[in-house]
Design a protein around this nucleic acid. Sequence first.
DNA 1: TAAGACATGATATATCGTATCATTAACTTT
DNA 2: AAAGTTAATGATACGATATATCATGTCTTA
Lengths: 153, 153
Amino acid sequence: MSKISKALDHAEKHCKVSGTRLTEKRKHVLTGLLKSQKALSAYELADFYRNEFNESVPPMSVYRILAFLESENLVHKLHLANKYVACSHISCDHAHEVPQFLICDECSAVKEIGIKKTLIDTLKRNVAQAGYLLKSPQLELHCLCQDCAKQPA
Amino acid sequence: MSKISKALDHAEKHCKVSGTRLTEKRKHVLTGLLKSQKALSAYELADFYRNEFNESVPPMSVYRILAFLESENLVHKLHLANKYVACSHISCDHAHEVPQFLICDECSAVKEIGIKKTLIDTLKRNVAQAGYLLKSPQLELHCLCQDCAKQPA
DNA sequence: TAAGACATGATATATCGTATCATTAACTTT
DNA sequence: AAAGTTAATGATACGATATATCATGTCTTA
Ligand SMILES: [Zn+2]
Ligand SMILES: [Zn+2]
Ligand SMILES: [Zn+2]
Ligand SMILES: [Zn+2]
């Protein structure tokens, strides 16, 4: 069983438990993200969908579907890149924590990592000292992936 | 001498040293950011400019001017908000470090803070462990400012 | 003053995103 | 099964952010 169908399987179960519906279209959008292995914009996903499934989907529907998938923690939005990625932990059983992302500025590759809680706590203290309240500790960092770091830009 | 004219004065000197020109328009755009005390988009700045100086500027020029000001470290772009802020350290003499920003999601207030180097180093190590290269340690964090944290959203 | 560099204006277009209303599909209740 | 209700999707319009390109203007300097 491929990684992707395994993830879809988990997503299915997840939705059943949460009492929501993983429709065909939603499954297809998620498949697109899983296959692409990088961050895609809603419009890029609509294109992918059209090519992959020989069926066109209005970008507006993609937005709605992404919002749904995000609310189920199956997908994450990268606010820095205005793109979306499939969660790396769909097939994991543990509860989902606040995600941290490394985004390759060259090729949009994304790595979802766990950052030590102590580091986040330190960050929170830093923010509090400045009189602000940290709303979301989701970090998104401008990076280069291994491949892009090697090559001459 | 007001804080703003002091900052403009410093900006002027800074540009003289770096051999660049702080033209009237560029000065006005910077003034807009200094006055606003919050992050503004290029288009918002164009509006501000029109009202403040009774002279219209095409948004495209604002973009170019912002790019210039950013290259001189007089202005920073917030990629998370797609807005721009005047640097808080224009009037400082020390060299400019990589900035970190706390952005109020409610009112666009922005605080430019210095985050301890040790924390950044830890972060860098985390990223390296994941096989990525941290391109810019500029952090932008979703926050609430003091005012907005108090009020019922 | 003529040449070159730099700055700005003007226009078109790409990209990301929201708002709104209509239509269709699915689930619920009788 | 039929009717009623809710959820999902389609369709259209529009707004905001951003880039690309070519034309025009302004400053500097020889
Ligand atoms: Zn995740
Ligand atoms: Zn890359
Ligand atoms: Zn600064
Ligand atoms: Zn605020």
